[in-house]
Write a protein that binds this DNA or RNA. Sequence first.
DNA 1: CAGTGGTCTAGACCACTGG
DNA 2: CAGTGGTCTAGACCACTGC
Lengths: 252, 252
Amino acid sequence: MSKMPIPPPENAPAFSPLYQQIKGLILNSLRLGEWKPGEGIPSEMELAARFRVSQGTVRKAIDALAGDNLLVRRQGKGTFVATHAAQYVQFRFLKLVPDSGTPGSEGPAQRDIVECRRARASADVARALALRTGDAVLQVRRVLSFTGTPTILEDIWLPAAPFKGLTAEKLSNYHGPMYALFETEFNMRMLRADEKIRAEPAIDGRELLLKIPQGTPLLSVERISYTYKDVPMELRRGYYRTDTHHYHNTLS
Amino acid sequence: MSKMPIPPPENAPAFSPLYQQIKGLILNSLRLGEWKPGEGIPSEMELAARFRVSQGTVRKAIDALAGDNLLVRRQGKGTFVATHAAQYVQFRFLKLVPDSGTPGSEGPAQRDIVECRRARASADVARALALRTGDAVLQVRRVLSFTGTPTILEDIWLPAAPFKGLTAEKLSNYHGPMYALFETEFNMRMLRADEKIRAEPAIDGRELLLKIPQGTPLLSVERISYTYKDVPMELRRGYYRTDTHHYHNTLS
DNA sequence: CAGTGGTCTAGACCACTGG
DNA sequence: CAGTGGTCTAGACCACTGC
């Protein structure tokens, strides 16, 4: 034992490259809203001067953030804060696509808000949103229809505090992705999400809203969306008809 | 019209950065088997000398290939050709995970080959594998069980020629991922795959192999796997029980 | 044309691995 | 300790965008 070299302290400060520290600083500015979604951030040269590092180091930091889909680079124009409102990411979090045709080829989905009310978090909702059982939440239920056919039923739970003022009317009147509304109205950005996918029979009234026979197999998609610092901000249970659409995924 | 500037030629040779060309050269060596899966490739300095470019340019090329999961970098050791045999990618293409526990926490899956025979490609199989209807294919059917419970039924179609000699016995005796067997026995590397996921009732005898009631909703996962140059090499239809497991996906 | 991101180079040094 | 990948810098030049 006495010959063992002294180990590094218990929580040894792991080596952190400069560009990762710069990434953290930019991330902080993003979180604090120094630049809003859709806006451009300062040029690489400006940021290099600001942080007293070389352009290459800023570049690596921005590359990492662009890889995380937090920033979007556009040659000749600048670097911009990613937004769910942008056309080219209209369906960034929706992986259900028509069996024939391309995503969005059916035109915009028809969105019907079935319900939007305050409620108390059940045990599992509370766990997903890092709340306590009984805490106030907003519960939204909506149906998305493509070419007239109800295809997606979604139950959505949001912590009540950050989304204070969200109403069925606001949801109905807003034309664009729900997450874009969250950005502009509530300053809440959904950055990442985990999905758990199962096959379940249509029951509990879901068959009625989707106008299908009871027991029809549905794709059940439970999504937890996260904002900055991996804080969970939305629980969404989606039920997808998969007779004319499918969930698409790429493995690599 | 006469004031319009002369447009570039119809198929203007799009500008291709040097590092992308280097990427193409390395890709070529990989495809020709100059380095086998699991082996190390030459160091960045060596490759830089070989291609007469700077280390930084080779670095960008390797970064891109590592991003595509074709190479794996290991600091201090070298850069290695990715393989499905490696421990840390044991489940690279299998996204079904137990509801509680981590991927692989149930120990190795029990694999039972139900069938392995030559057949002729139906129209849809032919289309998926870029063959012609009636071409020879190998058809494999197997059941994967976790902790004794049959959980996955897979029907697999492979073009007969590249997989000549594949038998049920070889599949049964090989302990490791099927794609690792493909690498070592048939020099065939699965690099990428697309999956189409649906919910379907268990019918056509699938309920018997999975020992569940007829009509139970199953997750239907149709996968087409590709090798180099985006050539399709496998069609796989998987049927997953999702009462104790779920398909996990991350969105960003 | 100026300003932006994108490429390429050359060189120095650091962190990790193994003998 | 030598060899590998990883970081950082400084500077030159290129491709794209918009005025």
